[in-house]
Design a protein around this nucleic acid. Structure first.
Length: 350
DNA sequence: AAGCCGGGGGA
DNA sequence: TCCCCAGGCTT
């Protein structure tokens, strides 16, 4: 619909925020910004975008770094698979594309970490290809205006939205249209308290006409939260500290933390400490032991109850597990750690 | 289709 | 508290 695009882009031109990734058509810059902004607010991602451009000015710099360096730079932003995929894709682009990104949506979406949204964003912003972006903002705007009565996390809901998005995109200005509809959702047609009174689509919005704005969009499922208890052993030798790299497929994969024990019910701290000391043949009189206050770390799908047991000792561990790493304390800051550990280290790690 | 993956902000 | 954020991957 031509009128929709005209009004939308008109709104955008007067209300748009001045954001650095809107000043460029460089696919590397666009890709970086889009991955950083996946499930992440602009306010939260902006400083990371600037930091990444400074640390890794080109895709060659990113590819030439280590995954650990990328994860360290990503520390605190969450969803760390994004950082691992970013590094992987940078290396692939350098090795198989001479540092050039694929020139269209179909090529982009084959890359790790680039799904339908990100491929459409890069294709439209960098190449002006006519592919509609469908993010949380777009879903909200379209579902309200058209009154989508299907759950947006169902197949029917997704089909309805993507069909509408295809019809609505402005073939003359795909890049501007995509920027505009996302910005409109982010600033005007917000999840709560949208500014319907001053909305340019006031008279053509189904949800507003029916006084059902808060009904759209809706989901069928909500994620449920599981409790997780972690007991960390902060083994503090005079010049060294033990850490471990998190592997497998769980939370914080690729980051570092302390050796520890995880459980889905509340553990017996005294027992865990006793068994730890026994396993390392440590005598209590050879250590200074203190326990941190409990840390409650709230995530979307987890409530993590963490406790840091600080064990100051001059003894060397007699039986470290295979994934433990002994590093100089002065090097600890080079390792990417979860926010939880970062907070502990910044606070009462004495 | 459903589950999993972080961290933070707004109401 | 609850919901959501310029989503994507795995099972």
């Amino acid at each position: 619909m031509k009128d929709f695009s005209r009004k939308l882009i008109g709104w955008y031109e007067t209300h748009r925020r001045d954001l650095p990734w809107r000043q460029t058509t460089n696919p590397y810059h666009i890709w970086l910004s889009e991955v950083i902004l996946q499930q992440t607010r602009v306010d939260q991602g902006l400083s990371y975008y600037l930091k990444f451009l400074k640390l890794f000015p080109t895709v060659h710099d990113l590819a030439g770094s280590s995954e650990d360096q990328v994860l360290k730079a990503w520390q605190g932003l969450g969803y760390y698979s994004r950082a691992r995929n970013l590094h992987h894709t940078a290396q692939l682009v350098v090795e198989h594309g001479q540092g050039l990104f694929p020139m269209n949506y179909d090529g982009l979406i084959k890359l790790k970490g680039i799904g339908p949204y990100t491929a459409a964003a890069i294709a439209s912003f960098a190449y002006n290809e006519k592919k509609p972006v469908i993010d949380g903002n777009v879903v909200r705007v379209l579902s309200r205006i058209y009154g989508i009565e299907h759950a947006i996390d169902s197949k029917e809901g997704k089909n309805a939205i993507s069909q509408l998005a295809e019809e609505m995109i402005d073939p003359r200005n795909p890049a501007s249209y995509n920027q505009a509809i996302m910005e409109f959702g982010a600033l005007h047609c917000t999840p709560r308290l949208p500014q319907c009174d001053s909305c340019p689509f006031h008279s053509s919005c189904f949800a507003f006409a029916k006084k059902r704005v808060s009904d759209f969009p809706f989901k069928k499922k909500k994620t449920r939260v599981k409790n997780l208890w972690i007991t960390y052993f902060h083994i503090d030798e005079p010049r060294y500290v033990w850490i471990r790299k998190r592997g497998l497929d769980g939370i914080w994969k690729g980051l570092y933390d302390f050796p520890g024990i995880e459980s889905e019910s509340e553990p017996d701290l005294g027992l865990q400490l006793t068994e730890f000391l026994k396993s390392q043949a440590l005598k209590k009189r050879d250590c200074v032991i203190s326990s941190s206050e409990p840390y409650l770390h709230i995530l979307t799908h987890r409530r993590i109850h963490a406790r840091f047991i600080h064990i100051k000792t001059k003894s060397k561990m007699s039986n470290p597990l295979s994934d433990w790493i002994r590093i100089a304390k002065t090097n600890l800051s080079q390792y990417g750690v979860p926010r939880l550990v970062e907070k502990y280290l910044a606070g009462d790690s004495r």
